[in-house]
Design a protein around this nucleic acid. Sequence first.
RNA 1: GGAGAGGUGACCGAGUGGCCGAAGGUGCAUGAUUGGAAAUCAUGUGUACCCGCAAGGGUACCGAGGGUUCGAAUCCCUCCCUCUCCGCCA
Length: 425
Amino acid sequence: MLDVKRIRENPDWVRQGLNARGASTDAVDTLLRLDEERRRLLTEVETLKSQRNAASKQIGELKKKGEDTTAAQAAVRDVGEQIAALDVRVRASEEETQRGLLMIPNVPHASVPVGQDDAANPVIAQEGTPREFAFEPRTHIELGEWLGLFDFKRAAKMSGAGFALFTGAGARLQRGLIQYLLDVHTRDHGYTEVWPPALVNAGAMTGTGQLPKMAEDMYRLAADELYLIPTAEVPVTNFYREETIDRALPVLLTAYTPCFRREAGAAGKETRGLIRLHQFDKVELVKFTTPETSYAELETLRADAEDILKRLGLVYRVKALCTGDLSFAAAKCYDLELWAPGHKGWLEVSSCSNFEDFQARRAGIRFRDVEGRLRFVHTLNGSGVALPRLVVAILENGQQADGSVILPPPLVPYMGGVDRLVPRA
RNA sequence: GGAGAGGUGACCGAGUGGCCGAAGGUGCAUGAUUGGAAAUCAUGUGUACCCGCAAGGGUACCGAGGGUUCGAAUCCCUCCCUCUCCGCCA
């Protein structure tokens, strides 16, 4: 969330940000009104509390001297009742202000291109050129079925539409990719590996900004009031929730987790095969940085994710998300998209975002700067990368005329020496 | 799941109704001492919010939330977490 003081002192900054996102600025005006009311009540009740504290102290002293304090106590009790009544209003006002704050999205960074929606996202880089095929390239679904890598029919039987069941070499490829991605990020990019819970509480979800706004998109276990994580960003960013980080910044963490998304409202979009799933696997990168370095760190985070795609020899492009397409908590974001020749399109495999102090303020993650002041860190994260679409690209790009698939060389050791996927005999 | 013991500041630890935002110790910072250090001595050392141009003042916080009281770290209730033992289980 944004700093209420900053909104108070510079409401136009927030209004401009909301405008750029294509969101209404009414929330700012409402919030300013709520904040003013809140402070008025707070000042009032604190004055009364000050009076009560002084009077109570006096009663204590009088009692020690053995004097009668009945009248004084009655008077203070009266003040106490006023305080109790006011406290109720203060709390209501604070809750309302907080609710308002939680619903206001982050303000886009000045470098974010202005635009209405994803059509306005500029492509800022492209690596490699799509391969020319001497035959009509098959989709990952055709390839996977022929090679026995996954079985959507059986997945639907046990779980329903939108779930993947990997089999044989397909299952091994999942395991190998997870290990490969974690190896590269820990060995070559300086990240520390963590293995977090996949179920988190509402506090964690609020800390990273999924709650309260995105409640509809998540699986929730009502009996225990727990949520299935939609991304490792949630548990990993909450690693330091309500803490002052006592390590030198930046802190770099990486984690593999399954990810769970209800994808409510996604019906009708690309739902076949591996492209959009209710459960998928992902290796995530998370950074905690000082405010001064977060934008430089965003560039290296993106480079770390890109490095994976380069090593695997895949064709990809980078988009800078425009103001209108930015997610709720992000101040700036890049998307990495892989070329999928069978699918004849680009598939998003990573979003690399800087949230500035938006998540840190919600989650209470701070550090001590060189002058010893407590400040909120900046948090960043990016996929490094999501597995299913990576598999789509690997299969569709590596396919041969006979339907076999040549694997990228770095994966061969992770596949037990297998360099080409062929149907099981 | 059952029984018991606990949760106090960066850390250890005292504190059973007012003199407690909290003793004492450790750590840390600054100064004195020293050639330099150790030791020693002195001083300082939480966070959030509100009022104020500022200086400064106020409120709250002793796991969380309620309650009793003129007054709660201290008493009562609920919940969470940690530890020990038992049960169960991968």
